[in-house]
Amino acid sequence: MTAQPHYSGGFQNAPVQAAHAFRAAMTVMARPGEIRELNGSRPPNPLSTAAGTLLLTLCDPETKVHLAGAINTDAVREWLTFHTGAPLAQAADADFAVGRWAELGSLGTYRIGTAEYPDRSATLIVECDELQQAGAELSGPGIKGTAQLFLPDIPALQANAALYPLGCDFFFTCGNRVAALPRSTRISMET
């Protein structure tokens, strides 16, 4: 197995592990600012456990995936293709995009949905060095009062939220932890 790393590191028991992973993903998407653990996969470096688990849980031959920057290695491409069968795509066509914030590039590149089908937008999985409940102040659906979350780029994410009901949705991953920011969340600098 060591000679063929792209065959290992998938779910051992896909129905159950994917169910656990989805509940964590759904919880953070429904409650922006909350952080959950996401385990089950062992993806090749530099993909984090949380990002790898999200990809195994949500991607298949029906979803186009964009790998941005340093994450776009042979090992990651082979691992993703072997385990999900997801076709790789450019940013503008992607249903899911994975990478560090700086490497994902301008948000204007990604699909934001259409007025009649706002669901046809990209979900960005942003690999972060830190994930903590401090920084930007969030309010809106899913949040009782306000919540705090460290965000990589507040002005760009505010501009995305201003497109509501269009816009991209985000998962922030760090190691085996995940948080999310749907387009419906209003963002302000913490006072």
Binding site: P15, A19, F22, A30, T57, L58, E62, Y164, P165, S184
Partner: peptide, 30 residues
């Protein structure tokens, strides 16, 4: 049965719809 009856690819499709539904509250995702 596969856990919870549905096959995994169907569940992924439904899960993606649920996530988009949560991101745009009240919008009906096909």
């Amino acid at each position: 049965y596969n856990f919870a009856y549905l096959d995994e690819q169907t569940k992924r499709m439904i899960r993606r719809a649920i996530l988009k539904g949560l991101a745009v509250p009240g919008y009906q995702v096909p």
